[in-house]
């Protein structure tokens, strides 16, 4: 099987240094476990960060040189059409660009491939050219989908942790550089400005005074009833 992992221009959240996105490192881990050949693909001008992928299990990396502001979809589409990969892996959101997570969908549309989101596990299907994808759902549930290849799969943060980084492997990996046609990104009529952190809603227990919910030395049976009632009234669990 031939797989390609899409690599974006991620930045470290603390230092702003170019790094490999963790999600994409997890995608490499999933792809490595599947076997076959696995290569990386990056469109852009950021080599420092993505070359880390070679230390996380990739043997080779293709880089389509594009200016940072260019729209990479058409360049990636052309390259991937020529590659004829069975499986294209990506993080659920690429980083560094608009961070909208649209690129895999745009690629799938352009390549005419089915797309499955939020994979946490990949296993080869029983029939040839099929893949079983476990998608993460809320509360630990999984949706097991069998898909006919070729397909595009994006990876969820709950996928297994990436393979640890190996400096020696990064040094030995191959980087192939390609010249690509740059397409202008559609200019957005939106205003860009420096990021400002905004408060999130706080998740504290509902303000029903803790004094009235403090029970000192109740009978164990009474305590048990209180606990179950609290859980049910707050919609955590329903028993019986």
């Amino acid at each position: 099987m031939k797989s390609v992992v899409l690599l974006s221009d991620a930045r470290h959240p603390v230092s702003g240094r170019a790094v490999l996105s963790r999600l994409e490192a997890q995608a490499i881990g999933l792809g490595t476990a599947l076997g076959g050949t696995l290569t990386g693909l990056h469109a852009g001008d950021c080599e420092d960060g993505v070359q880390e992928s070679l230390g996380h299990g990739l043997s080779a990396l293709d880089i389509l040189s594009l200016p940072p502001e260019a729209d990479p979809v058409s360049a990636l589409t052309d390259f991937l059409k020529a590659q004829k990969a069975d499986l294209i892996l990506a993080g659920r959101r690429g980083e560094g660009g608009f961070d909208s997570g649209l690129l895999p969908y745009a690629l799938a549309e352009a390549l005419g491939l089915p797309i499955l989101a939020d994979a946490v596990a990949l296993t080869p299907g029983e029939a040839t050219d099929t893949l079983v994808v476990d998608q993460a759902l809320a509360k630990g549930a999984r949706r097991r989908v069998t898909v006919r290849l070729p397909a595009l799969v994006t990876v969820h943060p709950l996928a297994p942790a990436p393979l640890p980084f190996a400096f020696g492997a990064m040094r030995r990996g191959t980087i192939r550089r390609h010249v690509a046609e740059a397409a202008d990104a559609s200019t957005d009529p939106v205003e860009e400005r420096p990021y400002r952190a905004r408060p999130k809603l706080m998740r504290t227990s509902s303000a029903t005074a803790s004094a009235e919910n403090l029970h000192v030395g109740p009978e164990p049976e009474e305590a048990a009833r209180l606990i179950l009632d609290y859980l049910e009234s707050n919609g955590i669990r329903r028993y019986g």
Binding site: D134, K139, A141, R142, R143, R144, T146, R148
Partner: peptide, 17 residues
């Protein structure tokens, strides 16, 4: 056409991370 089967596996709280 590309999706061959779909199955929901409920989460088991005892084994969840």
């Amino acid at each position: 056409q590309a999706i061959l089967s779909v199955e929901i596996i409920p989460g088991d709280p005892a084994r969840l991370a």
